[in-house]
């Protein structure tokens, strides 16, 4: 297909218009609230097992929060985010309109993928805000842990998020292609849930195959004291570990495969 002369920014703005009143925002909000409120309530009910007195509570608080996010939230959240973003087009039967435009198909494929990545980045950023706010709220009920006395280590938190983000790329590209491939939302979600369960089993039992399974990669990218992940080895490329490298490789493979498939499929 021919290249587009439409500016990428105009296309991205168009994508944002489509999100108006769409379930994507609710999914985004739900992901953040579920993590922040879950961690908040967990600490409120069982604080003495989660944080220690007289030491910086933020480190332990963030670690527990991210472990919960890592295991229970991130994969299902990404499944919903990707599928529902693509389903906006499926529901409107919009491909026949979009692909009849002069721009060609590739630009729509790339713009939608960029939108998903930006939404994921945005939700990770909002999660940082949510976790910090919930930590300060916790101080109202549990002042003895002195959340206000210590400063949250935001740089460390951002570093964690960066690893999550990179380790999720392979899963995003795969799930994106699946969502484009099937016209309904249930099939890609069903495959995704199956992959999520397999990913948990592989990660929890320390199977090395998890390194080659996109659904498991976000769960094992950082040692959260939950799984045996001794197979994560330091890498030689700019501080990326092997889990992240595998994720980037999956992203490139599935991203290109999806691009080719989308450019060549018949729109019936």
């Amino acid at each position: 297909m021919a290249n587009s002369s439409i500016s990428p920014l105009a296309l991205l703005r168009a994508e944002l218009i489509k999100l108006k009143h769409s379930p994507v925002w609710y999914i985004l909000l739900l992901g953040i609230l579920l993590t922040a409120s879950g961690v908040f309530l967990g600490h409120l009910m069982d604080a003495h097992n989660m944080v220690k007195l007289n030491i910086d509570p933020w480190q332990r608080y963030f670690k527990v929060s991210l472990a919960i996010f890592n295991l229970f939230i991130v994969v299902p959240y990404l499944l919903l985010l990707v599928s529902s973003t693509v389903f906006i087009e499926q529901r409107a039967d919009a491909w026949k309109y979009l692909y009849a435009l002069p721009s060609g198909r590739g630009v729509f494929y790339i713009t939608k993928l960029v939108l998903i990545l930006l939404l994921y980045l945005f939700s990770l950023a909002m999660l940082i805000v949510g976790l910090v706010l919930s930590g300060y709220c916790l101080n109202i009920f549990l002042p003895e842990y002195e959340f206000t006395y210590y400063q949250p280590d935001l740089l460390n938190l951002i570093e964690f998020m960066r690893h999550f983000f990179i380790a999720s790329l392979g899963l995003i590209a795969w799930q994106y292609w699946l969502s484009l491939r099937f016209k309904n939302i249930l099939v890609p979600l069903g495959i995704g849930v199956f992959g999520f369960v397999l990913g948990i089993i592989m990660s929890a039992t320390g199977q090395k195959i998890a390194l080659y399974f996109p659904y498991a990669l976000p769960m094992i990218v950082k040692d959260m004291d939950m799984f045996r992940n001794e197979y994560i080895t330091p890498s030689f490329i700019n501080g990326l570990n092997n889990v992240e490298l595998h994720s980037i490789a999956f992203f490139l493979v599935f991203g290109l495969l999806g691009y080719w498939w989308e450019n060549n499929r018949e729109v019936v």
């Binding site: 218009i17 529901r91 039967d93 026949k96 979009l98 009849a100």
Partner: peptide, 13 residues
């Protein structure tokens, strides 16, 4: 300009 059968409309818009 084209309109193929039912128009492609986003229900929320």
């Amino acid at each position: 300009g084209s309109l193929i059968e039912a128009p492609s409309l986003y229900p929320n818009l």
